[in-house]
């Protein structure tokens, strides 16, 4: 199961700011789901190959040929804060 502290740690990893109410609710809901999910933890799957892919492909490669890039204004068209042809973000603070 998962406790409040773990929920806060995971929320930080995921860059999600949760209200106290959300933390409460999340702790309960995640615990419930994990309880169900934990069933597979009890299965003995020693030596079973994990599947990260169902497609049996290898070496899908692209020739090293340039493709046209986006026009600068198009690249920045959706930017919340375009500045001097770049994407502006607040600086990270020392912690």
């Amino acid at each position: 199961m998962i406790d409040r502290e773990q929920v806060l740690h995971v929320a930080r990893l995921a860059r999600l700011r949760l209200s106290d109410a959300e933390v409460e609710q999340m702790t309960g809901e995640l615990s419930g789901i994990l309880e169900h999910v934990d069933r597979i933890g009890k299965l003995d799957l020693e030596g079973v190959e994990p599947t990260s892919h169902v497609v049996a492909l290898e070496n899908v490669l692209r020739p090293d040929l340039p493709r046209p890039s986006l026009a600068k204004d198009v690249a920045l068209a959706e930017a919340p804060e375009p500045v001097n042809g770049a994407f502006r973000v607040p600086s990270p603070q020392a912690e």
């Binding site: 001097n84 973000v89 600086s91």
Partner: peptide, 8 residues
């Protein structure tokens, strides 16, 4: 470490 902003 400085405050202010960054351009990407």
């Amino acid at each position: 470490h400085g405050s202010g902003a960054s351009l990407v």
